[in-house]
Write a protein that binds this DNA or RNA. Structure first.
Lengths: 334, 334
DNA sequence: CTCCTTATAGTAAACGTTTACTAATATTTA
DNA sequence: TAAATATTAGTAAACGTTTACTATAAGGAG
């Protein structure tokens, strides 16, 4: 419990130099006598010595950490992304430093700083708002950067994007096909590019189909699920109620659904609802949620692959993932 | 993009010694002339210098990292725990290193090693199986340790426990009260203490009520949700079907529900089902799930508080959280 | 038996910090 | 005015590694 053993202690006990111990540990083909190996091994066991990565990092300047910043871990979409990230990172021996920005710009900034100071090898960030300065700052420090969902006009940044606009367009098309003419868009704050793109797709599809009714209900809080209730309440105050709703993501959709249900609005009988993300549980909801599927785990895996590509000096690229409409029970013909 | 600036570069440009720069950065009340401060500030700006935490850690031996090991991030229970952990940790300026053991003992062991090598200040672990050696190894290295869900007979280890046995007992009582006499327990591998405790509660409550029917269906995979289908299939093979099910957790419950529903078994008309955890979305399921509530976020927060207590030399304690029965629509009178 | 090579191991510098000492001024106190 | 103290800053060692150099011995080649 006292001081931790160092390579010096091992060297002393094994009666060799620290260089030899270091070579033994790095196990890189440098020849060491069997006899020597054995005594080092014993010393290590005896001291239950564990190498100090901090010392190593300082010397080699080779970090095995990847920073990951996400807006919230409470929306199951992100744990799925993280799952993909961790899976790939683990394969390569990397660890992840997970940070939750809570959609707070300051907190995000702070986390970025900390991660840089911790000498992460790369950074995967699902940023709130597009903060060009933030990104360029990271890149200028020589840290590999992959951005999720947010398109940036910056070279050297990997980008795993999703066609949000098209997704929204598909969702609205579906609703129109079902005969809906009054479709509202319920959303958390429209700060992220992804959300703005959903709005774009919503507007565009309505316009393309000469539908004049449109209603965007935005709430100024960031707690997806709880927002649902607020959004539902705000919606019910309107006098010209929609017959269908597009929610900015599945969690918001659930919140809205729950609030509406509690207030005697039947889904999908009275109001149809479409979500966004297709998180795993969406098929089990009551009613099962019609939604736009976004490949979360794959996003994470691609991000890591991209990160390694950048680290290997390959040209960084953009990948645009395409949406898929999943029709379930929360939408019906009017 | 070239080499990162160091404190030496800053000192050179500001025309002061590195000691002064270090003092300026640590901002600990050591008096520095305004003039000097200004030139250091300029130099830092000019170089866009960021301190290297690795250097600092090596010198001070003060890590600001907490390792967190969880079995899976795909069961929303854990993200909620992580949320609590991160919240508290952030307040104290700590970062978390998140590791997903995937319920793989080797991987868990490997992660523990890595985290120790990374010199984490403390470790919060929701271990698969109780591995006494693992725990004692960590403690003997002077690393603060908090175990979640798993009771260990080891001093110096903080423990945030949950009364699983009582929870199961409550669930079964509820089902018995509804008139069910044939209740099955569907579970992922019975390796963790928590799961064994649920089994205990299940058995005990049946025995206390002189019910002879019992059926434990266990599946040898670790993917909660997907397990549900396997468990459902296995169950339907039996010839003496139960009228009610206790699932080892909510995710498994959903998997089972989905499989059964697809196979024309109506819930709760044909079979009642009780889950375990009460993850956030459980009230939105189809049907809303009756379950045993386990305070996830609070568990995370308590774990961090405990960790800090241990770090401050206070006596480590155990906390036992109590279950609550949440009755919803997935259970009904027979 | 000299010269090369190979196998094996040690020495010491370096990575980027912090901090205990020391030092030099300036200011106060008696 | 001398001594004491406060303010400000520098020197250099240390943290635990890795690694370029150097060193020794032993075995072959000529």
């Amino acid at each position: 419990m006292g001081k931790k053993a160092t390579i010096n202690d091992v060297a002393k006990i094994a009666n060799v130099s620290i260089a030899t111990v270091s070579r033994y540990l790095s196990n890189n083909g440098y020849p060491i006598k069997e006899q020597t190996k054995k005594s080092i091994k014993n010393a290590i066991l005896q001291l239950s010595y564990t190498p100090n990565i901090v010392g190593r990092m300082l010397k080699t300047n080779k970090s095995m950490d990847i920073g990951v910043i996400i807006p919230t871990i409470l929306n199951p979409y992100y744990p799925a992304v993280i799952y993909g990230i961790e899976k790939k990172a683990y394969e390569k021996g990397y660890n992840i430093l997970l940070c939750n920005s809570q959609r707070d710009a300051n907190r995000q900034k702070q986390y970025v700083n900390t991660l840089i100071q911790k000498q992460v090898k790369g950074l995967i960030i699902s940023s709130i708002g597009d903060d060009f300065l933030l990104y360029s700052d990271i890149v200028s420090k020589g840290i590999a950067l992959v951005s999720l969902e947010d398109e940036i006009s910056l070279d050297k940044v990997g980008q795993v994007l999703f066609n949000y606009e098209k997704g929204a367009y598909m969702a609205i098309s579906h609703l129109l096909k079902l005969g809906h003419k009054k479709i509202a868009f319920l959303t958390s704050p429209l700060v992220r590019k992804s959300r703005k793109d959903i709005l774009k797709g919503y507007i565009k599809c309505l316009k393309d189909n000469n539908v004049t009714y449109n209603k965007v209900v935005e709430i100024n809080e960031e707690n997806e699920y709880e927002n649902g209730a607020l959004l539902g309440a705000k919606l019910l105050l309107e006098d010209d109620l929609p017959t269908a709703i597009l929610a900015v993501n599945d969690m918001v959709a659930y919140g809205v659904m729950q609030y509406l249900t509690q207030n005697k609005v039947k889904i999908p009988e009275d109001i149809s609802i479409v979500g966004f993300d297709d998180i795993k549980i969406s098929k089990m909801m009551n009613p099962a949620l019609t939604t736009i599927s976004q490949p979360s785990q794959k996003t994470g895996e691609l991000a890591v692959s991209m990160l390694f590509d950048i680290l290997e000096g390959k040209e960084s690229k953009k990948i645009l993932l395409e949406p898929e409409l999943i029709i379930r029970a929360s939408t019906k013909k009017i």
